[in-house]
């Protein structure tokens, strides 16, 4: 059994080493979607023409995706957190009242 774990460890180690070595540089290949998401800046009028900054008014495109375009996901995440905390409360409330 230990030999299997050792072989799995070596394979995983080589995989992580190789994937860290073969990783692409940032911005390579250039993304076609950056202008779609963040928007296009008009330098003559000084305003954003379309995109996330124009639609939501937030400078951080990640937050405008998380809270605006995919707001349902954040609501579901809040529901998961609420359910987990309600479970912990239900588990430990009785110990406190005794």
């Amino acid at each position: 059994m230990k030999k299997i774990f050792f072989i799995a460890f070596v394979v995983f180690f080589i995989f992580m080493f190789y994937s860290a070595y073969e990783i692409r540089d940032f911005g390579n290949p250039p993304s076609q979607m950056d202008d779609r998401i963040i928007g296009k800046y008009n330098s003559t009028t000084g305003e954003w023409e379309y995109g996330a900054v124009n639609e939501t008014g937030a400078n951080n495109a990640v937050t405008s995706v998380v809270f605006d375009y995919r707001g349902y996901d954040t609501l579901g995440e809040a529901t998961v957190l609420f359910t987990a905390i309600a479970g912990v409360m239900m588990l430990f409330r009785r110990v406190k009242n005794e």
Partner: peptide, 17 residues
């Protein structure tokens, strides 16, 4: 409600975010 320009944007922006 302010839609930010290029560069540093004010705190008073972002809508309901």
């Amino acid at each position: 409600g302010i839609i930010p320009k290029w560069g540093v944007s004010p705190l008073n922006s972002g809508g309901v975010l």
